[in-house]
Design a protein around this nucleic acid. Sequence first.
DNA 1: TAGATGACTTGATATATGTCAAAATAGACA
DNA 2: TGTCTATTTTGACATATATCAAGTCATCTA
Lengths: 208, 208
Amino acid sequence: MHRLEDLSNNKRSYPSGGYLYRTGDRFKSLHAIRSGSFKTRVLHEDGREQVTGFLMAGEIIGLDAISTDLHTCEAVAMEESEVCELPFNKLEELSRDIPSLQRHLHKIMSREIVRDQGIMLLLGSMRAEERLAAFLLNLSSRNAAHGMSATQFKLRMSRLEIGSYLGLKLETVSRTFSHFQEEGLIQVKARAVELLDLQRLRTLVGKS
Amino acid sequence: MHRLEDLSNNKRSYPSGGYLYRTGDRFKSLHAIRSGSFKTRVLHEDGREQVTGFLMAGEIIGLDAISTDLHTCEAVAMEESEVCELPFNKLEELSRDIPSLQRHLHKIMSREIVRDQGIMLLLGSMRAEERLAAFLLNLSSRNAAHGMSATQFKLRMSRLEIGSYLGLKLETVSRTFSHFQEEGLIQVKARAVELLDLQRLRTLVGKS
DNA sequence: TAGATGACTTGATATATGTCAAAATAGACA
DNA sequence: TGTCTATTTTGACATATATCAAGTCATCTA
């Protein structure tokens, strides 16, 4: 067993804005993203909402949706997004027989929790510049992990969505981008970003 | 199978500040809290840290510790804290035979993720008053869930710890407490708190 | 290509929260 | 009980980010 998505025989496509699942849906599957990208959101009764994550090709969606009805996941990329469905009951059955799968699921689950804790640290104790630098570096290393450029990429999400994720207003996100550019840390034009000085971006994140 | 802790034959005690697990420990057990309370923290390489949760008697600790080495859990109460250990491999074995346990574990896991998402919403989009009101209401309902008063209780944690959890400085926490008292929402003296107007506290959280 | 629509940038100003400092209070211990 | 220390409160001031408001720039459609 090398890749979870080998288990799937059900592939589906979603247009931008298409819902993979939405508030109230019963959780029943994991999804491996083959192309495009997705965002997850939590909703509050009073209408307040927040983006809680962005997911890209090569990553697994779904565990953070377990049993919550205040949570949605939808495609954000400009191109079509494709996923493989991994039905949960099938995974459960298999995981009884295949110990390595059990561990694999654990690892995925853990990763989500660790990721959430990182975001909590970010939201709770970083300033705007640190948050955005951390965000860019995170995208960078995930790009690299999937065989894409670590320094040049196109953002899949709007300033508003980035702001929601980082706990900032879109104007602050935009200003901080501009500021980074003035400092020679990045080159940014609309959604096209190039990281010019990874080292200085890293030191930016690691200070209080 | 009604309560997870019936599985345990291993009970342990911790003094205030005692570590249940600490950075780098290998995750191997869940723990059911019998008395006292605990806090979990994430640590950052640069020394920055944040309280990510408070856990009280009757609750289960441990899942958010899976495979992360930047995470600690320690006792915070004044009195001794006692836990039942639930070894993970034992749980895994049992969960193969007992489907209801599998579901039970799922539910616990989900709850942690949902909780984290709630905190992300709080940290990302609420102001100081809303955060503290949400915090107090959360303590209140958890107290009630364990058969204690929903309106009168003693805080187990310092202003500094509350601030770390809510992404605020301790002075802001203190000022907000005082402000709530002036408004007649609560009665507070050091760590003794009485919620005087639950309804208004709730409306405070649900606006912006 | 022109016009329309939504996304992004930039500026001026307001405001919430942080920072620094001191005093008051509570809890621990001899 | 009194002393010591840590916690909490309160004040004055600084600052980061939000808010409000234009204006520019992209992208899409006709």
